[in-house]
Amino acid sequence: MRWVFNIAWLALLAFLATTWPLLPDVVGSPRFMLPRDHYTAWMLTLAIVGPWLTTYGSLLAARHWPRLINLPYRDHWLAPPHREQTLADLGGRLAALGLGLLVLFAGLHYHALQRAQPHWPQVPADVWTAGSVLQGLGLAVWLLALMRRFNRLPVVAAPRPARQGSRSTDLVWRETQLMWPLLAVLLPASVGLTLAVTHAQASAGQAWMPAILPMLLALVFGRMTTEVHGDRLCWRFGWLPWPRWRVDLDDIIAVDAAQSRWTEGWGIRFTSDGMLYNASGTQAVRLTLRDGRHVRLGCQEPRLLIGALQARISGR
């Protein structure tokens, strides 16, 4: 995969260097325009620095400064017994990510070129939109594959006991946290976009449309609800049934209070200590599962959640 990336990288640089004379004197839309030389300098800089940081720069940091790498169970995967295999695996995955970045830069440059070259094949607007959607889906698949590869340790902490059927399935404990950091950004953004479009169009008929995405993000990720039932621990974000996760209590071997750093952010994050699900604040509860994984859940009252879990776990 790396040699494919290297060839594509050289091809992109050659494409940029040989086609810049075909650009108009001013490149861009009426709202944002750059002189041709400035545009070319920016594109060449991005096409050199961006792919390098994504691939070789990230591998260099993983080898020499592993604390800069946000990898699940980083201390395990980058320890000397596993480091070379991990770096080789990461190299192929980062090369695939770099290829996607190269395709993005090539598409942006061709989009600028086709305006100045009407005799070239013209890509319809729907194709550009579909390409953007595919880029986003490809990035999501790449992230899921990375998490699937590194979010599970190759050890089993303890054998799983026989499932207990004596527990009640009633709700034992529930907590809901609003994701204030997200809501504080999205709600003003929705209002600001609506006002900006209304002012630009002098009509409020469709001014609400740009606010759909911030409102949808708030609906899906605006809060986190954690519940302990008789035989399982469940948590979900937002007001919709998805995204939602559950862990059987029989798969939990230990639970303790923990902290999340503000640099780890909020939402759904994979960290060096396993997955983190957090809506606000830095208090959390760490679960140790039988397959060796750690999961941290943000919590306003960690002692209450720990008490609810330990009472059910110890009552196996």
Results as ranks from 00 to 15, higher is better:
Arg83Gln: 09
Val156Met: 05
Trp142Asn: 04
Ala308His: 06
Leu71Asp: 07
Gln283Lys: 15
Leu68Lys: 05
Tyr73Pro: 07
Leu113Arg: 00
Ala202Glu: 13
Tyr277Pro: 01
Gln85Gly: 13
Met147Asp: 11
Ala200Gln: 14
Trp239Leu: 15
Arg63Cys: 00
Gln206Val: 00
Trp245Tyr: 05
Leu186Tyr: 02
Gly292Thr: 02
Gly222Ser: 09
His199Trp: 15
Ala61Ser: 13
Leu289Asp: 02
Trp245Ser: 10
Arg148Ile: 00
Thr263Trp: 14
Phe5Arg: 01
Leu108Trp: 07
His76Val: 01
Gly192Leu: 15
Met179Ile: 05
Leu219Glu: 10
Arg93Val: 08
Arg244Met: 10
Gly298Val: 11
Thr40Leu: 02
Trp239Ala: 15
Leu289Val: 04
Val220Phe: 14
Val185Leu: 14
Met215Ile: 13
Gly28Ala: 04
Gln135His: 11
Leu186Trp: 01
Arg67Pro: 01
Pro72Asp: 03
Gln300Asn: 13
Phe15Cys: 02
His229Phe: 15
Asp231Tyr: 05
Met147Arg: 09
Pro188Trp: 06
Asp273Trp: 04
Thr226Ser: 10
Gly107Ala: 13
Gly98Pro: 14
Arg290Ala: 11
Val127His: 13
Gln85Arg: 04
Leu44Gln: 02
Ala47Leu: 12
Asp126Cys: 03
Val172Cys: 09
Leu134Gln: 02
Leu108Phe: 13
Val247Cys: 09
Gln177Ala: 14
Leu10Thr: 07
Leu104Pro: 04
Leu97Ile: 05
Val191Phe: 13
Leu101Arg: 08
Val191Lys: 05
Ile212Gly: 03
Ala204Ser: 11
Ala14Ile: 14
His38Asn: 03
Ala14Ser: 06
Phe32Gln: 03
Thr263Phe: 13
Leu134Asp: 01
Trp20Val: 09
Ala284Leu: 09
Ala158Ile: 01
Leu289Gln: 04
Gly131Gln: 10
Trp242Ser: 08
Arg316Thr: 06
Arg303Lys: 07
Arg303Phe: 02
Pro80Gln: 07
Pro81Tyr: 06
Thr226Asn: 12
Leu139His: 06
Arg152His: 07
Trp77Ile: 00
Leu134Pro: 04
Trp245Asn: 08
Gly230Ile: 09
Leu219Gln: 04
Asp256Met: 09
Thr55Asp: 03
Ala61Tyr: 02
Trp52Gly: 03
Val127Lys: 09
Leu144Trp: 08
Leu99Asp: 01
Leu182His: 09
Glu264Cys: 02
Gln259Thr: 15
Leu171Arg: 13
